[in-house]
Design a protein around this nucleic acid. Structure first.
Lengths: 197, 197
DNA sequence: AGATTGACAGATGTGGTAAAAGTGTCAACA
DNA sequence: TGTTGACACTTTTACCACATCTGTCAATCT
């Protein structure tokens, strides 16, 4: 049998994807995990801690996957494009994130505005580390600023799906951030077909 | 005496900045404009039309100001920087916009997500036209994509104020979009002092 | 003993309703 | 012609009874 806490986190993500974040109840999570509420409270001290652990696990998995892809490519612009592409696909295909953005986006507002941009700062850290590894010639300040721009674009694409497919967007962002507007015409239609998995 | 409709729009913006968008009442607007509700309804057929006219006027003024500044500068990167700087200052100093983002950002959610990104598409049009004028060597598709990125960044900065001052952000965005990451180190501290008005 | 659970107290959220405020439109007035 | 008090209708607010949920026991089971 899987680790109990992993099973509980799976149940939490599943329940949230079905009923939404605002309607998430620990009774529902416990039932899906095959145990009762008091047992669940032995593993997680509160509902808030349960949610925090779940989002941390989901976000960590995404960051790890993107990190792996990025580190497997030497050339900065190609690595950037592959990382952005994977990130776009992960957020688009994540059932819970998709559910929240589509049906209850208002819960994201406090995370994006009030809490000093909690989401922004959480995403910016791994993004900044990746940028630092791929653009070693940039100093720390330039890295931070480039990471800020990239983070804002990623959040924007996650909240408001672009018209173009992820392959185009990834190639576009990588081209502009790496080489500026002058490199834009190099993003031709063939990029789509050859990159489509 | 000023034109009645202009006075009504002034009153509407003022009332919304004080009481918020959700608490905006046409009785309040009428009182501030120095007339009664029935008279106000002679000028605007409904509350919805009044709000639409107000945001259209405010947005139009901003777009016009940015357009003027951008068209006064030939060099693309400098024009881009000046336009972004002015846009950042305008949104930061706009009392109503500031009030909405700070105290009732949830009203922005439907505008940014559901309505097919009504705000995004409204802002993208003038941005796209400016980009097309300043980067004439780019084809229509490249212009649209560059404008999309610029629009997303502007909206992001409006919703979530950056750590750096507008002068830095403007120089940064202009440098990256025009020439890519390689041009980043050229954004030094002197840029701030010499640009601060 | 260690893990699990039914059951409880307090907090939180839901549904329904009556009062209040707001919208849009008259006919009457200046 | 331009303005407004007053009206019907809709939407919002305030309240309360009720249901649900959270977090924590002591009791139960293995």
């Amino acid at each position: 049998m899987l680790d109990a806490e992993e099973r509980i986190l799976d149940a939490a993500v599943e329940a949230a994807a079905v009923h939404g974040i605002t309607r998430l109840s620990v009774a529902d999570v416990a039932k899906r995990a095959g145990l009762s509420r008091p047992t669940l409270y032995k593993h997680f001290p509160s509902k808030e801690a349960l949610i925090a652990a779940a989002v941390q696990r989901e976000a960590g998995a995404m960051v790890g996957a993107v990190n792996t892809v990025v580190d497997g490519i030497d050339e900065p612009r190609a690595a950037l494009r592959a990382g952005v592409l994977l990130a776009l696909r992960l957020v688009r295909d994540h059932p819970l994130l998709d559910r929240v953005v589509r049906t209850e986006p208002e819960v994201l507002v406090p995370l994006l505005t009030t809490d000093e941009g909690l989401v922004m700062s959480a995403i910016r850290l791994p993004v900044e580390q990746m940028v630092a590894r791929k653009f070693p010639h940039l100093d720390a300040v330039a890295v931070r600023r480039l990471a800020d721009i990239l983070t804002r674009l990623l959040v924007s694409y996650a909240l408001n799906a672009p018209d173009d497919p992820p392959e185009i967007v990834a190639a576009l962002v990588a081209a502009v951030l790496a080489d500026g507007a002058a490199s834009l015409p190099s993003i031709a239609a063939h990029t789509v077909t050859e990159e489509t998995r």
